[in-house]
Amino acid sequence: MAKMSAMLVPDASILEDLNGITQVDPGEAVLIAVTLRDPAGMFITGDKRALRALAQHPLATRLAGRIVLVEQVLELCLNQNGREWLLTCIREHRAIDKAIAMIVGSNCDASLENLSAGLSSYIGEISNLCEPSMIACLITANRKLPS
């Protein structure tokens, strides 16, 4: 029988700090606090509003390189599987995220160049919010993402 790893419990003081940031939802606060509890923890999000607010908080330095953006995952998928595959997967769900909806276009028919440029733009914007960047460095087939 496989051994289950212990569930991490968020640090109460970090959770309290995060709950003081109005742009960070309570569920995200728990996930971020758990991420900070695990030295190897990473957090995947598409909430740029929360990241902009978090970048102004002292906890941002502790999150350096530990956040993966949904746009980074999509860029990896684009590079790995191509434009048609990505647009097919996103088509029915594109309205969930405004940034992604803008990147793929109103008819979900963005060109490869527009997809790449749009994803890179959002990744770059969020990566540059604070120094060191909270955004993880991922390697793609075409380029190294911001570190």
Results as ranks from 00 to 15, higher is better:
Cys89Gly: 15
Ser120Cys: 05
Thr88Gly: 02
Asn79Leu: 08
Arg83Ser: 00
Ala136Glu: 01
Gly124Cys: 06
Gln72Val: 03
Gly124Trp: 08
Ala95Arg: 13
Pro132Lys: 04
Gln23Asn: 07
Gly46Trp: 06
Lys3His: 10
Ala12Gln: 12
Lys144Tyr: 08
Met134Ser: 02
Ala60Phe: 05
Leu76Trp: 14
Ala136Tyr: 01
Leu31Arg: 13
Arg52Gly: 02
Pro146Ile: 09
Val24Met: 07
Arg83His: 07
Arg66Ile: 05
Lys98Phe: 10
Arg66Pro: 08
Leu112Trp: 13
Glu75Arg: 11
Leu87Pro: 03
Asn107Ala: 12
Ala99Glu: 10
Ser106Met: 09
Asn142Arg: 14
Leu8Thr: 10
Asn81Ser: 12
Ala64Arg: 11
Val24Arg: 03
Ile21Gly: 00
Gln23Ala: 15
Gly27Ile: 06
Arg49Val: 15
Val24Gly: 00
Ser5Pro: 09
Leu36His: 03
Ser120Ala: 09
Ala29Val: 10
His93Gln: 11
Asp11Met: 08
Ile44Val: 14
Gln72Ser: 00
Ala6Thr: 12
Ala6Arg: 09
Leu69Asp: 01
Arg143Trp: 07
Gly41Thr: 01
Ser13Val: 12
Arg49Pro: 00
Glu28Gly: 14
Leu74Tyr: 06
Ile14Tyr: 08
Gly105Leu: 05
Asp47Ile: 06
Ala60Tyr: 05
Met7Pro: 06
Glu16Thr: 15
Glu84Leu: 10
Thr140Gly: 12
Ala110Phe: 04
Pro132Ile: 12
Ala2Asn: 12
Phe43Pro: 04
Leu119Gly: 00
Pro10Trp: 00
Ile123Asp: 01
Ser5Lys: 14
Ile21Pro: 01
Ile14Val: 14
Ala64Phe: 14
Cys108Ser: 08
Asn107Asp: 15
Glu113Val: 10
Gln23Cys: 05
Arg66Leu: 07
Ile21His: 01
Met4Lys: 13
Ile126Arg: 00
Leu76Tyr: 15
Ala29His: 08
Met4Val: 10
Leu51Pro: 00
Arg49Thr: 14
Ile44Gln: 04
Ala141Asp: 09
Leu63Asp: 02
Arg91Gly: 04
Pro10Leu: 03
Ser120His: 07
Ser121Ile: 07
Phe43Val: 08
Ile90Ser: 00
Ser133Met: 04
Leu76Ala: 09
Leu115Ser: 02
Arg37Ser: 15
Met1Ser: 06
Leu8Arg: 12
Asn128Gly: 15
Ser127Thr: 05
Leu36Arg: 04
Leu54Asn: 03
His93Asp: 10
Thr61Asn: 03
Ser133Pro: 02
Pro26Gly: 03
Gln23Asp: 14
Ser127Ala: 15
Val9Asp: 07
Arg91Val: 10
Glu16Met: 11
